[in-house]
Amino acid sequence: MQFTRRVILRSAAAALAAAGLPHRLWAANTLTMGGVTLDTLSDGHLVLPRDFILGGLPEAELAPILDRYGITGDALMPPCNVTLLRDGTNTVLFDVGSGPDFQPTAGKLGDALAALGLTPEDVTHVVFTHAHPDHLWGLLDEFDEPVFANATHMIGKAEWDYWMDPATVDSIGTSRTAFAVGARRRLEAMQDRIATFGDGEEILPGIASRLSPGHTPGHMAFELRSGSESVMVVGDAIGNHHVGFERPLWKSGSDQDPDMAAPTRAALLDQIATGQMRLIGFHLPEGGLGRAEKTADGYRFVPEV
């Protein structure tokens, strides 16, 4: 296995400079496993209220954890890392980012692909971990046309059923009503070209689905394997590098079902740490690629840098 860290990628730097615009920078990782190349590409970042993730947690125990990671203020700005897999035949994206309609700090995936010399037309498969806006809304462009027009789109059956259920918009809670409306509109637009799958299926060569519910009802992680080497794409089942690792059984407001998400997160971390696997997290720092190390009372995220 070979690993390299690309600190920045510059897209059309000369043109931007000529126009008097700032360079756009993306952190990215590249990992090779046999004939498979994995890249993590930045879709930008989100700006979230602190309490959306950390609200309701025990302050006395939370404070020293946040201090260790330098987390202050009333807002968190998690990065958004999209995973790209290329095996010589398939070019696979895991999630598609926010697109133009969610937050102005996100929706940069097209530029990140261009920095690698790729276009959306080069993508053969799009595989979703789940259907939250920062993972799904990049599915359509400003004119509601498919961005990845040549790709086969794939999503877990449980996740598809949940967002396509007309009752979801009324049961999801008022703070997430827009999530439900936006997901169903986009999935309906793609329903003739999207395939579903179940837990434990090899959806493409070397890519196996792993049901990891709680963040959403049908959230999927994916085990990517080449020979004896493997990487787990965890999506939002492990949503941050601080509390999510140090106290995986604490409940997070970012999860739709915190009671289910917490044991899912703990079990996934145990599997990754015990198996000494690498993982890629959508909202983890340094491009999202790293390892989970067991500590006395939790885990620690060790980025690959």
Rank of each mutant, 00 (worst) to 15 (best):
F3M: 14
T4D: 15
I8P: 01
L9Q: 13
R10I: 13
R10F: 07
A14F: 09
A18R: 11
A19N: 05
P22Y: 07
A27L: 12
N29P: 04
M33I: 15
G35H: 08
V36G: 06
L41W: 09
L41A: 13
L41M: 15
L46H: 06
R50M: 10
R50H: 14
D51I: 13
D51G: 12
F52G: 02
F52K: 07
F52W: 12
P58M: 03
L62A: 12
A63R: 13
P64T: 09
D67E: 14
Y69H: 15
G70W: 07
P78T: 07
P78A: 08
T83Y: 01
T83R: 05
T83F: 02
L84D: 05
D87F: 02
G88A: 08
T89H: 12
N90G: 12
T91K: 06
L93K: 07
A106G: 05
A106I: 01
G107W: 07
K108S: 09
A112L: 10
G117N: 11
L118G: 04
V126S: 04
F128V: 09
T129M: 10
H132T: 14
P133Y: 06
D134A: 14
W137I: 02
L139D: 04
L139E: 05
L139Q: 08
F143Y: 14
E145C: 14
P146C: 12
V147E: 06
N150M: 08
M164N: 06
T174H: 12
S175L: 15
L187P: 07
A195W: 15
F197E: 10
E201H: 10
G206F: 03
A208G: 03
R210C: 03
H215P: 00
G218M: 08
H219E: 15
R225G: 05
S228E: 11
S228A: 11
E229W: 03
S230R: 11
V231F: 02
V231I: 15
V234N: 00
V234F: 00
D236Q: 06
N240M: 02
V243R: 04
V243T: 10
G244F: 08
E246S: 15
K251R: 13
D257K: 05
A261Y: 04
A262P: 14
L268F: 05
L268S: 06
L269E: 03
I272R: 05
A273C: 06
T274K: 11
I280A: 00
I280S: 00
G281Y: 00
F282M: 01
H283I: 00
L284Y: 00
G288V: 01
L289N: 01
L289E: 00
D297L: 02
